[in-house]
Structure formats: C-alpha cells, structure tokens
Design a protein around this nucleic acid. Structure first.
Lengths: 116, 116
DNA sequence: AAAAACAGGTTTACGACATAGACTGGTTTA
DNA sequence: TAAACCAGTCTATGTCGTAAACCTGTTTTT
C-alpha cells in the first residue's frame, strides 16, 4: 500500500487536534457522555473542554443537550451522524498511514531524481 | 483493545502536525530526499517546508546535509535514528487508536455514572 | 440570613505555531 | 546588464489551543 500525501494533507484538523481526538474517539465508543465524565476521562481543564466541545458542536460533529441532574446543570454530549462519518473517514486515513509505513522492506537507497 | 486517553494526550506534536507528518512518513519510507523532492511530494510551499525541516532538525529527528549538485545548492534530508524511533512510537499510538475504535459492538447505552 | 465555599460551565487573554510571501545569493538567458 | 530563474531562508500575519478568571446558581457554614 502506497503512502498518499494528499490524504495526510487533508486530515480533518478539527478531529486531528489531540484534545478533540480524545473527545471524538471517546464519544465514538460511548454513545453519550456528560461534561464531567469527559473531563475526567480526557484530563482536560474545564475551559479547554468547553471550548473544544463548542467547536465540535459548531461543526455539527457533536450534539450538546443541556438539562439538569436534580438542581445542578448537566451537559450531555453525543456524536452526530456527521460526526461519526467524519471520524470514520479520519480513522481510515490513519489506518492507511499505519499500513503504508508498516514494513520497511522497500526503502529505495536514494531520492528519486527530481522531475525536469 | 481499550482506548487509552493518555496515549492520545501525549501524541508527539512535532510529528502530529500534518505537514511534518507527511515529511517524516516520507523520509521513513525513503531513506533520503532532497528539498525539491519533498516540496513536490508534500505540496508545501518552500517557506513552509523550510521551517518544518528546521524544526525537525532542531529536535534531532532529521539530519540535513547541504551540498551542491553542480553549482546549485542541494539540501539532503534523512531521518535520524531518534527520528525513526519517534515515528515508530507515534505510529504505534495511531495503530492503537485505530484498533480500539475498530468495531462498535460494545457501545454502552449510556454514560457511566460520574465518580463520587 | 449573610457569608463563604462549591458545582458546572463559559469567556477571554496569552503564547505558540503554521503558513505563505518577501528576501537573499548565485546562474543562465536575452 | 537586465530579466527571469533556481534553491532556499527569514519574517509578518492570523489562527488556534490553553488555562486562568469569571459567572450563575446551590449548598454549607457561622
């Protein structure tokens, strides 16, 4: 399998950012999670998490539902279908990269000559 | 295989950046490449490529050798052993992520209760 | 019952960094 | 000798991640 540069160049930056990658990957496996769960799990500060969630919501990747647990506010987050698809797409690109760099049995000794 | 947050949180940002990911992945498969080859292959602007290479060199991930092809300057780049190891480590993390999000057969219906 | 402490988030100020366009220094072409 | 060109480097700009400060309500303390 050959390494595809354009695939790497066009990696979804929204998902690629580690903080958001954690969030999205988590939501991908969990279906729904509240703010504090995400915070504990990811280790992000509240402010940081809040900003990233807002960004993901604005992109239509996550749905945020604000309700109450008793009298305290509760923020429930879940991946939208758009978000799931975006992550799957992103995941495939990573998979491709991992596969393409798998075995180092075909490393040419030298740079191919520059095109004329 | 379970999703490890800390592994994502500690992804090597130097390699994680798509522009540099292209460069490093390329050098990983190619052993040595000159500036123009990298530029053509990655599609980066000269300025951009130059800065990223400098950053990778400073980190000890790539070795940069400046020579001449005839009378024109020639810059040869290759991954150092440190760079190879860093990439391999990074790659393993991606591999893990891809594996951990592989099949959606175990998605709990709801958020685990927050810890007391 | 007023003050203090806390829970759950949001806003904002700061610093870091990716990007591309201007610049350098030599080279061939007109 | 001027203009176009190659091979890169430098630098100004804007974007963006981060955490500290802030906000709105609630419980606890005195």
């Amino acid at each position: 399998m050959k390494l595809q540069m354009h695939q790497l160049a066009s990696l979804d930056r929204l998902i690629h950012e580690p903080a958001r990658l954690m969030i999205v990957a988590l939501l991908y496996t969990v279906e729904s999670a509240d703010f504090l769960f995400l915070q504990r799990e990811t280790g992000l500060s509240k402010g940081n998490l809040s900003v990233h969630l807002a960004k993901l919501e604005q992109a239509g990747y996550v749905q945020i539902e604000k309700t109450y647990r008793g009298k305290l506010p509760l923020t429930l987050c879940s991946l939208t279908e758009t978000g799931r698809e975006a992550f799957q797409h992103y995941r495939r690109s990573l998979h491709h990269l991992v596969a393409a760099t798998g075995d180092d049995n075909e490393r040419p000794a030298m740079t191919p000559a520059p095109a004329g």
